[in-house]
Structures are given as C-alpha cells and as structure tokens.
Simulated scan of single mutants.
Amino acid sequence: MLRRVITLFAAFALLVGFGVAGMYLPVPYLVASPGITLNTIGEDPDGGPIIRIDGEDHYEHDGGLSMVTVQYSGGPSTRMDLFTVLSAWLSPSQAVLPEEALFPPDRTVEEISEAQSVQMNDSQTNATAAALTQLGIDYDTRALVAGVGEDLPAAGAIKEGDIITSVDGDPVDSKEEVVEKVGDRTPGDDVEVGVDRDGTEETVTLTTVEGDDGTPIIGVLVSNDMDFPMDVEISVGDVGGPSAGLMFSLGIMDRLSQESLTGGHRIAGTGTITPDGEVGAVSGVEQKMVSAAREGAEYFFVAAGACPQTFDSAATGEIEVVKVGELGDAVDALDAIRTGDGLDALPRCEPN
C-alpha cells in the first residue's frame, strides 16, 4: 500500500514538474503591446523637429498630432515562453497573435525589416503628396520603372530607372495612369509605351500577357516619382510600416500653415495615406488607443475600416474616437476641435 502511495505521489510530482517546465517552453506566438507615441509637430530625441522642411516658409505651433505604435515581442529568434504568452492573453491592453501574422514562413526577418522600412519611406512620400494636395500646392509626378520582370514582355525593352511618358501615344504622369491604360485591353493585345531613358525618348511596342489576376500586364513595376517644390524630411528612428501616413500628412500641413491646426489640443491617430488623401485602416488600433490615452491625447483619429477595433481596446471610453475617410475629413475635424464649433457632429465609429 505504501509503495502504491509513493508511486502515485511520484507520478503526480513528475506530472506537475512536466507541466511547470512546459510553461517555460518557447512557443510560436507574438505579444502586441502599446508602443511609443511621437508628436509629429514636436521634437525628436536629439532636439530637432520630427518634420523638417527646407525651401518653404514653415511654422511651429503648440498642441500635438501624434503617431502611435505597437510594440511586438517574440518572433522566430526571440520566442517567448507559454507563461508569458498566457499572461499577455489575460491582459486587457495586450494581444496575442500567431507568429505568422508578422513573420510569414516564406520570408526572412531581414526581408520583413526591409519591407517595413520601404513602407515607412513610401508613407512619408505619400503623406507629403497628400498634404501638398490638400493645401493646393502643386508638385510634379512621374511614372518611374522600379523593376522589370524576367521572361515578361518588357524584359530587354524597358529598364529599371526609365520614366514611362506615354501609353499608346497618350501622355501619362503617374503609376495609376499607366496601370489603367495598360489594363484597358485584352491579354495578347499590343501596346505602345513611350519611355524617357536618361533624357532620350524611345517608343517600344509590347504584347501584353495575362497576369495572375487575369488582367493584361507588360511586366514592369511602376512607382510614383514625386518632385516636390520643397524638401520634407521626417525623423522617427527605427519605426517602420505605413500606418503613420495620416498623422505625417497632418503634421506637414501644420508645419506649412501659419495658423495651428490643433489650436493647442492634443490629437493622436493612425491610418495609411495615399497621395490623393485616402485614409486606410491598419491593425493594432486597440493597443495604439492605450498609448494615446496614456500620453494624454484628447482625440484619436482612425480610418472607418478600423472602427470595429476601437470597441475592443482597454482605452475604450477614455478617449474620443473620430472616424475619418480621407485627409479632408481629418482637417474638418481639427477645425471643429480647434474652434469648438460642431463637436457634436464629428463622425464617430458605430458598434456593429
């Protein structure tokens, strides 16, 4: 009898031991936590402006137009243990995600980091374009060939760095125009493409092929090369991704405007931006709202597509959420906040 008791006790202890040990085994999950906030009309850690403008009169104003971030812990090279992940799952301000959400298995960490840097650079360019458009300041755009696919019609005929100037004789000055004009045909049709190569104009005739989505393509990656009448430099350190585009645009506008956009109020927000000012939804809004509330923001701007996330945040009810669909909506909301006129009519997120 005693031997049986001892055996059962030993088995129980072994089971508990395995259970405790299992709690500290690394698991393929990420933890998303509230990250840092950066006031785009404020100063960087070195004491200089986060948004620096050269070649145009610019101004400094009180208030805040803050971008907010999410801090991710874990990953293929720094996996967390199960105990830490479970603790985060129980936290109202954190979220647990599968590792693949940020680190797809077919991409290296270096590739992901590089892609995020490119997205950040693109968001700054798009933000500058959107801000200047909103202010009525003209700038030039060119359709730059950023890459040429192998074994596709453009290979050997068009080179990276070329500027596409026309499609079938019609002038084009943006990526969107090139895509639209090439796509307005049936795969197998010919298309004449005019290019500027180091100042020399050339015209090539290519036969389109069917792309992965069924649309006709010629095999070039085109980006918008924008020539602004001023230099805009944004310094945010190692932060990557496209989600600060909206707040960059507002920050640039505030720098270029004699009158403050905020009237001294503190605003935070998140959302991508296109050159024409369309605001896109991003993830991590739940954690970003917590960051904004902790920093004392009064209002939080968010794209309409991200509205459902705002009701799942630990900061829900602690900060006023304003829904924006385009940059002009954000500017109108700032006008209401600054003047106090029309606050009740600010667009809000509605629960499903």
Score class of each variant (00 low, 15 high):
129 A>Q: 11
148 V>H: 02
266 R>C: 05
11 A>C: 09
114 E>D: 14
157 A>Y: 15
43 E>A: 12
326 E>C: 00
264 G>E: 01
262 T>S: 01
219 G>Q: 05
323 K>P: 06
162 D>N: 07
199 G>H: 07
75 G>C: 10
1 M>P: 09
298 E>H: 02
231 D>G: 06
310 T>R: 00
46 D>Q: 13
61 H>E: 09
67 M>H: 01
204 V>G: 12
231 D>E: 15
139 Y>Q: 05
26 P>C: 08
164 I>N: 08
291 S>K: 01
161 G>E: 07
17 G>C: 02
225 D>N: 14
221 L>I: 14
325 G>T: 00
250 L>W: 01
261 L>G: 03
189 D>M: 10
34 P>G: 00
197 R>E: 10
84 T>C: 07
216 P>A: 01
175 K>Q: 14
76 P>R: 11
174 S>F: 04
154 A>F: 07
27 V>E: 05
51 I>H: 05
112 I>W: 07
221 L>H: 13
15 L>F: 15
121 N>E: 13
263 G>T: 06
272 T>L: 07
90 L>N: 10
301 F>R: 00
321 V>I: 13
158 I>R: 04
319 I>K: 08
271 G>P: 00
246 L>G: 06
162 D>L: 06
62 D>K: 14
97 L>F: 14
240 G>F: 01
55 G>V: 06
125 T>V: 15
328 G>T: 13
296 G>S: 08
111 E>N: 02
129 A>G: 07
116 Q>N: 14
217 I>N: 00
190 D>Y: 14
115 A>D: 15
264 G>P: 06
349 C>L: 10
298 E>L: 00
288 K>R: 04
261 L>N: 06
258 Q>H: 05
158 I>F: 02
196 D>P: 10
71 Q>D: 07
347 P>V: 11
127 A>C: 05
54 D>A: 14
246 L>W: 09
125 T>I: 11
65 L>A: 08
170 D>H: 14
81 D>S: 10
164 I>C: 09
239 V>L: 01
317 G>W: 12
227 D>E: 15
283 S>R: 05
260 S>K: 03
73 S>K: 15
308 P>W: 00
150 E>T: 12
100 E>N: 10
334 L>T: 08
79 R>F: 04
187 P>E: 14
245 G>F: 00
122 D>R: 12
321 V>A: 03
196 D>G: 05
41 I>G: 11
30 L>E: 02
119 Q>V: 00
194 G>M: 05
68 V>K: 00
337 I>W: 05
184 D>A: 15
76 P>Q: 12
52 R>F: 02
305 G>I: 01
72 Y>F: 15
48 G>Q: 08
300 F>E: 04
13 A>F: 15
124 Q>C: 06
209 V>S: 12
303 A>N: 11
